Simulated scan of single mutants.
Amino acid sequence: MSNHNNPGQAPDTGHEWDGIRELTNAPPKWWTICFYLSLLWCVVYFILYPSIPLINGPNEGLLNWSSIKEYKQAVAKYQEIREPYMDQLETMSAEQILADQEMLNFANSYTNALFGDYCSACHGAGGQGVEGRFPNLRDDNWLYGGSVDAIKETITNGREGMMPAFQADLGQAEIEQLADFVIALPQGQATQAGWSLYEESGCGLCHGEDAKGVPDFGSANLTDSVWRFGDSRDEVIRTISKGVNQEDVEGSRSAVMPAFDERLSDNDIKLLTVRVWSFGGGQQ
């Protein structure tokens, strides 16, 4: 399908530069055929599909196809499949959804975008949180409780942690001793002197006499190995010294979750509650 000419004997245009002649060899026949077929395909495409603008408006093509129309058809098909599930979800409680595996699977699929839009910026796409900044939703450690009702209340009304700064009430030595006590607690190495300082400083009023936290206050469990703001000695000292959400204290920790009651519907809040609970850390 092609002619193999000796380049030394091939016809040329008479133009030569630096010893290089400009030949006039015809391209291979297969290449010529493909070239004309591509031109034919362009003509067929212009006839069938939207292509070039015309005098009276765009050429819509014989197939009357458009990407917008295809998109709207896909959305309509999706809505048709989703509608029965959504109607059923609106009449079910969070507990009922959790007890129905089919509805639970749909709820978690539906809330992928919802969680991504409103929650993942802080808690991560998988709810894993950011160490030292935002809580992990996948463990079973909950400041305000991990029940369905507690999670729903958290999403609806938001949360704002509070811990007083002790830098004005305790000396540096006492703060460091208290920090060492808190670090030793999860390791089972807390001393009696540490317990005494814990009680005298009033820490038990929020964290409980057993230091396991009080969900009503949102106070942390100090006996586990989960750390809200980091487990290094310097970080613990800072938390005790500067407190949490103390506006008049420079360096105070910030721990605020916004309320979503005005941004999300009751149904969306319910479905997000189901998703957070089903991450694996929800409590009965």
Rank of each mutant, 00 (worst) to 15 (best):
M162T: 12
E199T: 15
R133A: 14
V276M: 14
A168C: 09
Q284G: 14
L104A: 12
V276Q: 08
H15A: 13
S2W: 09
L185A: 11
S93T: 15
Q284W: 11
A184W: 09
Y144K: 10
N112D: 15
C34T: 12
V44D: 07
Y110F: 11
S2T: 14
T91Q: 10
A94L: 00
E60M: 10
S120Y: 08
W142D: 02
T273Q: 04
Y71M: 12
G194P: 04
Q283A: 09
T154G: 09
D149H: 09
K69Q: 14
D266Q: 08
K242L: 03
P58D: 07
L23K: 11
N25H: 08
F181A: 07
G251V: 04
D87K: 15
Q101E: 13
S265C: 01
M1G: 14
L98R: 02
A94S: 13
I55T: 09
W17G: 15
I151P: 03
L89Y: 05
L40V: 10
G127T: 00
L271C: 03
S66E: 00
E174Y: 04
L37C: 09
C203V: 08
G127Y: 01
L104D: 00
P53C: 04
A165W: 06
Q172M: 14
S219M: 03
G8P: 04
G213H: 10
L178D: 00
D117Q: 15
N56F: 11
H207Q: 03
T111A: 06
A259Q: 07
T91F: 01
E200L: 09
D18F: 07
G171E: 02
A211Y: 00
S252R: 02
V44W: 05
S196K: 14
I240W: 03
Y118T: 14
L40K: 07
S241E: 10
P50I: 02
A168I: 11
F46V: 12
A26L: 09
D139E: 02
L39K: 14
S278C: 05
P50W: 01
Q73K: 08
G132R: 00
Y118C: 03
W195C: 00
N141Y: 12
G126D: 13
I47C: 09
G208D: 06
E235L: 14
N108G: 03
Q128D: 10
E250S: 11
E200D: 15
E250L: 13
F260H: 06
N157E: 13
G230R: 05
V236N: 04
S241V: 05
V226H: 10
A190W: 03
